[in-house]
Nucleic acid binder design. Structure first.
Lengths: 276, 276
DNA sequence: CGCGCCATTGATTGCTTTCAACGATTGTGG
DNA sequence: CCACAATCGTTGAAAGCAATCAATGGCGCG
């Protein structure tokens, strides 16, 4: 497996830049503007709550490393994760225009975070149409992922939904150079996954186990490999158009551009053994 | 109903204007700009598909009358409604920045629709910061409703979820003057409701029936009245903050501004009998 | 009047939850 | 270095919520 097949990631390993370069058509000028607008990087402990629901947002949070999530909490304690936030993604882009945050942002692992001042960012958007465009597009992508998960929560079975999530994560992580071929690190608990899928951790365990027994995926600790992309994709009815990866360069995304095809996505090692 | 009752640019009964006035702080100038940007009103038949999934959007669709929805369709035919669109709302605001539509837009009833040119609207947003702000805010509200429904789909029971929907619809319809006290017209089928809630129409029927038998709601044909707002709200754990109604004038929205209180919302008639 | 759509009802099935317990792993303090 | 607590993954049995299947009745409309 060579990283060279995935030229999406930045050399300096800034996933935010990588994501912007992959997703938008921002030029060097605007990328520079955005990067300079970022505050200093900060480390945040796992389980910390970066943003509380209902809070008045002053700055956006950009995830540079680790996994976070947007959380909705019902009064009786039931928890729903409205979205996983991966490296390079903005935790709370809504807050750019929201008077109050509609969800909490919580860290699922230890994370590195930087911030963007909302008012300043709006000002930049007003000056640079390309930035306004890009922010709008990022908002659309968030929205599309939410819409797709809605469909999954409403109409997909646990097995289909979990498969769908695993497929989605592979593409999103590949975009920022955090995947290894068909595999990636899944650093969250089955409880967390359950809160994303609207299931109990017990059921997540059983469904995950079946995927493993059928040889569709492999897991070693927190490392996961999708052994049979084609099958997993078919189970999930995964159609990646909603991720809007069309303009990304790199062969890893052929799948995103040819939603009708069911290719195997086997550019490199299939499992853990292949790496030893 | 004749065309003259639904003037696009007139303040008499234009729900789009009503919604903008209620939700945003747009002044007369910007409201005028937006209203003049609208195309001619057009009638659309029930079940028509205004926008197809994957389509490249050229113009946004504003709903002036009737109910529509955003549809996600799985390959095997299962349908999920990712959002109901009520009078005054924009059917496909995402399309302002999306290269392809992430969902289809379908009419649930006969509708009246007008359009906004995407490119022109983006240009207006670039010129008038207030408009950019307002559009951002509308996008946030859509997003918030989607996030809330996510939580419902994942973590609320059918009974809770349905109650939640009925509460939400009351506030959204009140905002555009389409509610009558605690009641409103619910012009869609139980099948449609099922597709919103991720349930079968059979189950929607049973749950609806129970709410009726318990006296929480009344239904006569397509007219619905919430008889016990306080109870229904408690069942749903309905916290309207996500609708961002904080700035709306009118006592009907006290409930939106005091999410902790459980007032009865009985400003007028409680049921059908009270109106005769 | 007949057709089609929609609401309703009952019986049965099944996916997912709940409850409970146990094992494995990790981190911590004595 | 080991005991211990805490977290997480795993497993089994039982219960429950919602889906499925099938049939009936009401209502509007051509």
């Amino acid at each position: 497996m060579n990283m060279h097949d995935l030229p999406v990631a930045d050399g300096s390993d800034n996933p935010f830049g990588a994501r912007l370069r992959g997703l938008t058509r921002l030029g060097g000028t605007e990328l520079g503007v955005l990067e300079r607008a970022c505050g200093p990087a900060r480390h945040v402990r796992a389980k910390a709550e970066l943003v509380r629901e209902g809070e008045r947002p002053e700055r956006l949070h950009v995830l540079l490393d680790g996994w976070a999530c947007r959380v909705k909490l019902l009064p009786d304690g039931r928890r729903q994760i409205a979205g996983l936030v991966l490296p390079g993604e903005i935790c709370d882009l809504d807050s750019l225009y929201a008077p109050k945050s509609d969800y909490a942002v919580a860290m699922l692992t230890a994370c590195t975070v930087t911030t963007l001042d909302c008012a300043a960012l709006r000002a930049q958007a007003a000056q640079h149409p390309a930035i306004a465009e890009a922010l709008g597009f990022l908002l659309v992508v968030d929205n599309a992922m939410l819409t797709e998960r809605n469909a999954s929560l409403g109409r997909r079975s646990a097995r289909e939904h979990l498969s769908h999530l695993l497929c989605e994560l592979l593409l999103r992580l590949t975009l920022v150079g955090r995947a290894r071929g068909n595999g990636y690190t899944l650093p969250i608990t089955q409880e967390d996954i359950g809160d994303v899928l609207g299931l109990t951790s017990v059921h997540v365990n059983r469904v995950l186990q079946r995927l493993r027994n059928e040889g569709l995926i492999q897991q070693r600790g927190h490392d996961l490999v999708i052994c049979e992309w084609s099958t997993l994709r078919k189970i999930a009815a995964f159609q990646p158009a909603y991720l809007h990866l069309d303009n990304v360069e790199g062969s890893a995304f052929d799948i995103a551009r040819a939603p009708w095809a069911l290719q195997t996505r086997r550019s490199d090692g299939i499992g853990f053994d292949a790496r030893r």
